[in-house]
């Protein structure tokens, strides 16, 4: 009986492509960023268990109250607890961010692999991608949400589609340079099937840049969600998201700036951490960039 390959060995071809510089040390910045992100993600995941109030419970007597023992961050215009809302709101915002990053990277990877390897498909795909990139992403997302309704999935899709061309371009450029390598020629000569070459020999090359790109997309998707909600083209207002909380706080901004300040701070901290981790990942995974900067 043949021994089945160990999982580690099976993934070797995949993760062997991600080379970390020997003896790398992470500075204080990325460590703090990672810690902040862990706290935010953990808090939002555990939100139903830890928030002091029901984030949806309105109380007409407690409208726009300042911070107190009962409401640590005060209340909003409907008397809902701000702390509970801000913590709970992170759930959907983060879901949309991570979802948009994963989906756009997955779709972009498929299209990019094909585009990088087949010249005929390349010409057509790249024209379409250029056109998609010419449409300002916020406007495209607005139009998509306006047509598909304000559900979480529709907003996630609307944010994902404009990001795809950027992933395609990245994957394509990596494949274009990798496909001239002798090992691809060797695989072709040995009669490997095209899908196998694409997936097993070319795809791993794209992994490191895609991880970096994915973190940036995640950050920008969370930002876009907030902007869409702010413009009234986001997730339905019944669901608290960071964007929705800020959009509602807008009307009372001059009265109570903290309605925008707290969700804005959470969101900015979150995006800042993701961006910093992305920069760190880029420095670690892409030695070429590092060398250029040194």
């Amino acid at each position: 009986m043949a021994a089945s390959p160990q999982p580690a060995a099976r993934l070797q071809w995949l993760f062997g492509a991600i080379a970390l510089p020997r003896g790398w040390r992470v500075g204080a910045g990325p460590l703090i960023a990672a810690a902040v992100l862990v706290v935010i993600v953990a808090a939002t995941l555990a939100a139903p268990l830890i928030v002091p109030h029901d984030p949806m419970a309105m109380d007409a007597l407690q409208r726009l109250k300042g911070p107190s023992d009962v409401y640590p961050l005060g209340t909003d215009a409907y008397g809902r607890d701000m702390l509970s809302r801000v913590v709970t709101g992170g759930r959907v915002s983060l879901l949309i961010g991570i979802g948009a990053a994963v989906i756009s990277v997955a779709i972009g990877l498929m299209i990019g692999l094909v585009s990088g390897f087949f010249r005929l498909a390349d010409a057509i795909i790249m024209r379409v991608m250029d056109s998609l990139m010419a449409i300002p992403s916020i406007l495209l997302a607005i139009a998509l949400v306006a047509l598909n309704g304000p559900s979480i999935w529709s907003v996630m899709g609307a944010i994902t589609i404009p990001e795809i061309p950027r992933v395609v371009r990245l994957v394509r450029s990596v494949v274009l340079s990798a496909r001239e390598e002798p090992y691809v020629e060797a695989a072709l000569a040995l009669g490997s099937s095209m899908p196998k070459i694409l997936w097993q020999h070319l795809m791993p090359n794209t992994l490191a840049p895609l991880i970096v790109q994915g973190t940036y997309i995640c950050a920008s998707a969370i930002l876009t969600e907030a902007i869409l909600s702010f413009l009234g083209a986001g997730v339905s207002t019944e669901i608290p998201t960071w964007g929705n909380i800020m959009a509602e706080g807008r009307v009372y901004f001059q009265l109570k700036p903290s309605l925008i300040f707290w969700p804005g701070l959470m969101l900015s901290l979150c995006i800042l951490s993701i961006n910093l981790l992305g920069d760190t990942a880029r420095d670690l995974l892409d030695p070429r960039l590092k060398k250029r900067e040194a």
């Binding site: 907030a226 902007i227 807008r250 700036p257 995006i271 961006n275 920069d279």
Partner: peptide, 14 residues
């Protein structure tokens, strides 16, 4: 530069 990318434009405005 990192901060500029991380704060929503309307929050900066307010």
């Amino acid at each position: 530069s990192v901060l500029g990318f991380s704060i929503p434009v309307f929050v900066i405005g307010y």
